[in-house]
């Protein structure tokens, strides 16, 4: 167990020794900052209009008007960023050959996988923590309901962790970081859009596709609803891909 921590430490350190983490954090904050200001500006404009027409004001709430659009946009940015964070985890070790040395140290495969996964999740969590400045700004100027923010953050954290687990799996399959990033991105997009075709298929297949969709389960979180089925989906997704990563490492020993 202690080995997980040692690997975690090493991996986290190398994220911040290289420019990757800083670049990703910076770009994430710039883009979400832009979205935040655009969404809040729009929301305040509508609020002014609502002051003239009290009937419209009844439909106005900050969850629908700010939290949902802000976090839906954030989800897209995370979809683009996570493959960049995960691509190097195993690919680089394989290309440099450090993977061979790592595998001959007295540590278990699962400790390696969890150490790397947790390090990446930590970078992601730092990313989210920095974006807390947006709800703090809103809380400063108004008195919003804080619970939808909590649920949205929980949702995006779970979804991002699911992205990371898939990215790690793909990073074990190739020595090339670009291929790892592009392939993770491709597979994530498929999981993202798989629900789109639900309308064109029968009711049974349609609901299966909708349940498989990685973004479908996020909608509730962004609306301030924490549903166990969505929780379980993300946890399952993450554990499944971590398990496959472990198998993939093991298969390295068997394949010639």
């Amino acid at each position: 167990m202690r080995n997980i921590f040692y690997l975690f430490k090493k991996e986290l350190r190398s994220y911040f020794y290289s420019p990757i983490a800083y670049v990703v954090l910076f770009i994430f904050l710039v883009i979400t900052g832009y979205f935040f200001s655009a969404i809040v500006t729009f929301y305040s404009m509508i609020s002014f209009q609502a002051m003239q027409q009290p009937a419209a004001a009844a439909n106005l709430n900050i969850t629908e008007g700010v939290v949902n659009p802000l976090f839906s946009n954030m989800a897209v940015i995370i979809l683009l960023m996570m493959p960049i964070l995960t691509m190097r985890l195993f690919s680089e070790e394989k290309r440099l050959g450090t993977f061979e040395l790592l595998m001959t140290y007295p540590i278990r495969d699962i400790e390696v996988v969890l150490g790397k996964f947790l390090a990446c999740v930590t970078v992601f969590a730092i990313m989210l923590a920095l974006s807390l400045v947006y709800p703090i700004l809103i809380a400063w100027v108004g008195r919003p309901d804080i619970k939808p923010f909590i649920s949205a953050y929980l949702g995006i954290f779970l979804m991002g962790s699911a992205f990371i687990s898939l990215g790690i799996l793909i990073s074990t399959l190739t020595e090339n970081q670009i291929i790892a990033a592009v392939a993770s991105f491709g597979v994530l997009i498929i999981f993202w859009v798989i629900g789109f075709s639900a309308e064109n298929t029968g009711p049974t297949l349609g609901s299966v596709l909708r349940h498989l969709s990685i973004i479908e389960h996020f909608q509730n979180f962004a609306k301030g609803i924490v549903d166990t089925k969505d929780l379980i989906y993300y946890l399952n997704f993450t554990l499944f891909f971590l398990f496959l990563t472990l198998r993939s490492l093991e298969s390295n020993k068997w394949r010639g």
Binding site: N3, Y6, K10, T98, E100, L101, Y105, P106
Partner: peptide, 30 residues
């Protein structure tokens, strides 16, 4: 693996670490 020290052919060691930090990491995982 607890009992061996291995030096592979092309000396694959982590480039983005200081020597002492790297050796510390190795003692930890070993």
């Amino acid at each position: 693996r607890k009992r061996i020290g291995y030096l592979p052919e092309n000396v694959p060691i982590y480039n983005d670490m200081e020597v002492s930090a790297y050796l510390n990491f190795v003692t930890e995982v070993k």
